[in-house]
Amino acid sequence: MTKKTYLAAINEALRQEMTRDESVILIGEDVAGGQASSGGPGKVGGVFGVTSGLYDEFGAERVIDTPISESAIIGTANGAALTGLRPVAEIMFVDFIGVCMDQVYNQAAKFRYMFGGKAKTPWVLRSMIGAGLRAGAQHSQTLHPVFTMIPGLKVVMPTNAYDAKGLMIQAIRDDDPVVFLESKLLYQTEEDVPDEAYAIPFGEAEYVREGDDVTVVAVGPAMLHAKAAAERLASEGIDCEIIDPRTTSPLDEQTILESIERTGRLVVVDESPPRCSLAADIAATVADKGFKSLRAPVKTVTCPHTPVPFAPTLEDAFLPNASRIVDAVKHVKAYV
């Protein structure tokens, strides 16, 4: 077991699965990089280096650089998956999904169902989510609700290096299309990560922190703030239980409901806008299935209903942060 970054953990998962199963291919923009360049191919390995080194190891036939053509990337992944490969397709920033959504929600998500169970589409769509890099409105979104509401897709949002590796391996081995959303602010975070391959099942939430006072459910990049808030609250005598669903589809409702049976109080933290969001969805689920457990209204901590702003002062004000989570937790804790 060695310390590895979230980024290195995903790279290791890809390498191990490509070694184990030759039907696994990578396809996307600059997943190798440097085609037809003076420096030669394979020098990029993804804009942040997640696929670095894989071109050298597996070659151009399995690490396929494409033009800037997102519909062709996902469409090609669809056709390849229908005919026996396990493509891992990269849409660099999740914001780019708009130009290829047809191939995601009308094609991949529906093949198995509308073809009467005879088709399988075992692909992984890797993409980056999250604000905080001053990247502006079209490179900073956290769009997991868009995917989570589509039947047929599975949606994965790892919040640490250990989960990132195990969930990626599961995603590649899964026979359904899996949207794997990488939080760019977490790429350099480190954890102990086993060297060997392991898979983490989907739909099993993790207790990040145990506590009896308030349940905090946080997904994706918002987990950083939830952990910081819990530390601060602990020093004030409020004991948070943090739950990481890890996958938003399937969603582990049971773990959330069990926690609320004990705490009676829930704060949901999510870096996406508030309406029709995962936060709203979890709040509604708990209102429906955990009503008797609740001793306070459910609070959500989300972004405002605006595009992601550019100026650092604005982006910082836009994002959920530990202070806002602390306030929400105190509010539900004080509610009689």
Binding site: N78, A81, Q103
Partner: peptide
């Protein structure tokens, strides 16, 4: 590999099948 009710939906899928072959 499927009829397709989206005009233009099929050709990218065909390129994927061609990659597999």
């Amino acid at each position: 590999l499927g009829a397709n009710a989206i005009v233009g939906g099929g050709p990218p899928i065909a390129t994927g099948a061609a990659i597999a072959t």
